[in-house]
Each structure stands twice: as structure tokens, then as C-alpha cells.
Design a protein around this nucleic acid. Structure first.
Lengths: 340, 340
DNA sequence: CTGTTAGCGCCTTCAT
DNA sequence: ATGAAGGCGCTAACAG
């Protein structure tokens, strides 16, 4: 079997407490003894059992991360960045993939992270009951999605401003029939689609453009959904000359639909996305860039800070990250139209 | 504080042992008492402490998953699928993002998973010393990348066959100057690029095409690398009329480079990728499809099987998953050439 | 600076 | 079918 703390203590001729103190860099051990213990431990290949030390100390040195879809670029990127920050600080990451309603429900009723994590980073937006469940864990909480909520440190972007810059860009190019592909079919507590929609409506109103409900379609935040949504929009009696997609993945789906319909981008239809997906540049997509990895890293850092100093108040409101419109090749003025 | 097993025992008027047995579905508890205990536990919001039960039983119900880059589509997708299988079986996933040499080294020297996991799924290829370190954990091991290695259950694809189908496709279209973008710059124990290269060379030889070293470039498995590599190939005295990229991400980089050089795909240059990335279809990329999520799920299942029945021998050799060439729009016969 | 004494919360014999 | 005792490996007071 693997060596225990007592094996090390015996081999080093000291007590287990001293080994514990020495190995964790706590004061109260002479340098000589400390280095001696370190040598013995290394030689025996000793690593403290996390279970045992968690049980005794109450600290787990692990962070629970809740994700809706690990395979999706946005979440994978946030997770990647957050994990790096956590592991650099000596914390392990327990991953929970809660994409399906069933998995999600089981997670929140059984709450397997109870007594298992020192903090939770949620990349999904908990509803009120779920938030309460998380708060009942009594550990620091953070999220990189959705709006402010009690008990959570939230890192995010200004969805309104991002959307406005995208839609304004289309308006400025001269478009009047501007469609939107949203991702509204998810759970209601997911406010991002709503904020983006409101911003879209506001810009249209501002520009004196009447809103046409036939120019909105749901793309479910997936490539396939985006393709379906674009196909729907094209079937309208007066199809849009430009489309704002609430995510790059949906925008790419839209591009595919347009190509299948033999429509040219941007000559026939302009497309703007949201996120600046790693492949947006490959397809030349104009989009609203947000610092995805940075949001994960920042949320992780804020959580660690609260762990280091439990008295420090978590940042109030939302920590806002910068966004910017990246102009590429999928947007242009509308085709000149005949007399109307 | 949260309820402990003794709180439940007291509230139910039984002993802690009985609560333990009842909640874990072990025999020796009358149905009546069992359901009574379940009710009390639910009412108290009791969940057993994982640390305590691991310590007492030696089982952790946790799987360690090692990943080089969570944000990369391939790994994110494998991880996503594996996590679903594990969590459905009641296991938690501890994620280790070992992209940098430094992180990786620290992981294998400190081995933080020791005494913390019941099994390990590695999505990176451990070298001999690293494999030995993992074996020393004394738990089942599996991987979805690289070749067969002692002590590991390996799920993968036939890289040779996949590459052959891609390169043969180009040969059959009439191409003679076929370039390759590889991902060879990684660590040496990463055999995939080598296998694919050998298969590429074999197909050329078979077709009586002389190999031109100027037609090979390293794309580092990234979009940017693929773009650089393609740019390099185009600078050759006699550039290729077709290119096989060892991954879709590099192929997409190549497409971007070609677009920047105002070359038409497939008219001027044909491109084939490898993976069938979720966005390959969006850009119309011809590619070798492999069941990525399925590989993660299958590896997870095989691990669980070994956990259920420790006596069962792990599958010998490699569990091979099917591949197939997906024809899309980036490949065509070469332009007819003048007399030569 | 170092050792001793108690648990942390649960599971596992062994009794009954 | 149930309860009592012991211990998993470590950390946290408390003594010296």
C-alpha cells in the first residue's frame, strides 16, 4: 500500500504532527527537521490523503465547476482558463456537466458537492431554487453568465452594449430589414437572450425602424439551430438583408443556410455574430468580441481571493469585461434596391 | 452546520450503522425502517460526506480525467461524453488540465490524484515515466489517444486507414503534388502524427509519386499553425495542388491562408482535414470523420466495467472505432495543366 | 520546537 | 435485522 503519515513519522523518527506541520509549511518546525522529513517523504513517495485531510480540517482544496456543455467552445474556453488559475493555486477542480434537465435536477437535489468543495463556479445560470441550494453550501459562489444575483460574484460583459454595437453597425450600413437569431428556447432564468433582444429592439426603435416579428427566429445557440433559424427567416415574405445572431455558432449556421440557398454574404445578406469564436476569423465573420478565457480566469481569481480572506467582501454588482466589435467580411451595405 | 449521519440516526431512532446500510441499499435493513430512514434523511437534507466515506471505505467514487487543452474541440467533446457516462454511474470527475510542460511535470511528480480517484482517463499520451507513475496508483487506467501501452485500456481509431482514405481520395482525383500539414512539433511520445505521416508516405509511394520534403509543414494542431504551414507550402518552388491536414483545425487555418492568397478552393488547391470538427460542415471541409464523443463514452464505460468487476481483464489491444471519409466541397480534380 | 490527545464522519466487523 | 466498537489518515488544540 501507499505510505501514510505515520510511516513517514516513524522513518523520520518524529511524530505525525510534526510531519504534518513540516510538509504543509506551517511554523513550528526547525529547518533541519523539516528538510529531513521532506527527504523521507519524497523517498517514500508519500502524498497526504485528501479525504483524510479534508475530513480533519474541513478544507477540501477543491472547487466545483458547473457547466452546461463542456464541448461547446465558449464553456470549454472558460473552463480551461478557470482550471489553470485554480490548479496554479493548488486547488483541484471537480467538474459537473449539467446539460440535460435530468442531470441538472439530480445535481441540485442531491447536491453531491456538499462537504466536497471549498467554492463553486457556475457556468450555468441557477434559478432561484438552485441558487438557494448553492448558497446553502456555505461556500463562496461565482458565475460568468447571467446577471447579478445575491450571494454570487459575477463576472460578465455588458450584453446590451455589445448587442447595440452590432445592430447599430448594420443600421449604419443602411440596413432596414434586420433579422435576429436568438437563443431563447432555454430555461427562463437565462436572461442573456432577453437582454440582447431588448437591446436589438431599442436600436431598431432608435433608428425609426418598425419591428417585424417575422424577422426573429430561435437558433437554440447551436450551429444547426442557427441554420434552421436562417432558413425560417429567408422564408418570410420580405426576408431580411442583414441578420444579427446572438452567438457565433448560430451565425455560422446562418452562413451555411445562406450558402445552401445560393445567397452571397455579404452582398445579399450581412451577418453579425457574438463571441468571437476561435473560428470566426476563419469564416471571416464580423462579430462582437468578448474576452472569454479572461472571464473564466477572473472569476477564478475572485473566488480564490475570498478563500484566502473569508472576511473580504465579494465584489458587488457585476465585474464587467470589455467587448468590442470586430469588423470582418460578412457585413456590407445592402444591395441597392429598385424603386419602392 | 449540515446534518451528519448521527443526526439522521438520532432523528430516526436507530443507529448510525443502520442509517449507513439503509441509505446505500445494503441488505440487512427491513423495508419499513429503510423507508423511514430515507424520509428522515431527505427531510434533514442529509448527504454523506465523500471525504469521510472515502476514508472509511477506500472508495472515492471519483475519476481523474487528464486533458491537454479543455478548450480544444476534440478534447472538450471527449471530456463531455466521458463525464456524462461517469456521472450517470454516480462518479464525480476531477479534471486536470495539463497543457503546459510545467503543469504537467508538477502533476506527475506530485500525483495529486493519489488516494483520490478510483480510476484515471488520460486524454494525453503519457511517456514511459508518466505511465509508470499512473500505474503506481493501482487503479484502472484508460486513454483515447495514442497507441497501445501496458496497463492502459485504449480506445481509438485506425489512424493509418483514415489517413490512407484521405490521401487516396486526392490521388484518385488526379493530384500528384500533395502536401501535408502535420502536427509533429509535440512531444515525441505522441505517435499519431508519425502514424499519419507514414500512411501518407505509403500512399504516395503506392501511387508512384515521389515524395517532396518541401511539401510538408508543421501546423502544431492549431488554426494559426495550419495557416502558417499553408503559407509555407505556397512558398515552395512548385506548390501543392492538394493538401492533407492532420486535423480539421489546421485545415481551417489552411483555408484561411488560401483565401488570403486569393486562391480558390477547391479549384486551385484541394484540402482534406481529419476529425470532422463540428464546424467542418460549415466551411464545407472534406474530412476523415471519427466518432469523437463515442470514444470518450466508450473509454468511460470500459473503465466503469473494470471498477464493477476488478477481476475482469481489461480489453487487450486497442478498441477500434469506425472512421469514414466525408466528401464535401474542398476537394476536386486539379486544374488541367499545360503540356509538361 | 515537538509530542500527545482527540476527534473529523463514515464504514465495517463482530456481537446480539 | 440491528447496535456497539474500532479505525480509515490526517489535523487541531493542548501540553511540555
Amino acid at each position: 500500500m501507499t505510505a501514510s503519515i505515520n510511516d513517514v513519522a516513524r522513518a523520520a523518527g518524529v511524530s505525525a504532527s510534526t510531519v504534518s506541520r513540516a510538509l504543509r509549511g506551517r511554523p513550528g518546525v526547525s529547518d533541519e527537521v523539516r528538510s529531513q522529513i521532506a527527504a523521507v517523504a519524497a523517498q517514500l513517495g508519500y502524498t497526504a490523503s485528501r479525504s483524510a485531510s479534508s475530513l480533519a480540517s474541513g478544507r477540501t482544496y477543491t472547487i466545483g465547476v458547473l457547466v452546461p456543455y463542456v464541448g461547446r467552445w465558449f464553456f470549454g474556453t472558460v473552463l480551461d482558463a478557470a482550471e489553470k488559475v485554480f490548479s496554479a493555486a493548488g486547488y483541484d477542480v471537480l467538474l459537473y456537466n449539467l446539460g440535460s434537465a435530468e442531470t441538472r435536477k439530480r445535481f441540485f437535489t442531491r447536491l453531491p458537492v456538499r462537504k466536497r468543495v471549498d467554492a463553486v463556479l457556475s457556468l450555468l445560470i441557477p434559478d432561484d431554487a438552485e441558487s438557494a441550494a448553492l448558497r446553502s453550501l456555505g461556500v463562496p459562489l461565482a458565475t460568468t453568465v447571467g446577471g447579478t444575483r445575491p450571494g454570487f460574484t459575477v463576472v460578465g460583459i455588458d450584453d446590451r452594449a455589445g448587442t447595440e454595437s452590432a445592430v447599430r453597425h448594420l443600421v449604419n450600413l443602411g440596413h432596414r430589414r434586420i433579422g435576429m437569431i436568438s437563443g431563447a428556447s432555454g430555461p427562463l432564468h437565462w436572461t442573456t437572450p432577453i437582454e440582447r433582444r431588448n437591446a436589438y429592439l431599442d436600436v431598431l426603435a432608435d433608428a425609426g425602424i418598425e419591428h417585424d416579428p417575422a424577422l426573429e427566429a430561435d437558433g437554440d445557440y447551436t450551429v444547426e439551430g442557427g441554420e434552421r433559424a436562417m432558413t425560417e427567416l429567408l422564408a418570410a415574405s420580405r426576408p431580411p438583408t442583414a441578420v444579427f445572431a446572438q452567438s457565433d455558432e448560430m451565425a455560422m449556421g446562418a452562413l451555411r443556410a445562406l450558402r445552401r440557398h445560393r445567397l452571397k454574404v455579404p452582398e445579399d445578406v450581412s451577418v453579425v455574430g457574438f463571441d468571437d469564436h476561435e473560428l470566426a476569423d476563419v469564416v471571416g465573420l464580423t462579430t462582437v468580441a468578448q474576452p472569454v478565457a479572461e472571464q473564466g480566469a477572473e472569476a477564478a481569481r475572485l473566488l480564490l481571493r475570498q478563500l484566502d480572506d473569508p472576511d473580504a467582501a465579494p465584489p458587488a454588482g457585476q465585474v464587467q469585461m470589455p467587448i468590442r466589435l470586430v469588423l470582418r467580411e460578412t457585413t456590407a451595405p445592402p444591395r441597392p434596391r429598385g424603386p419602392q
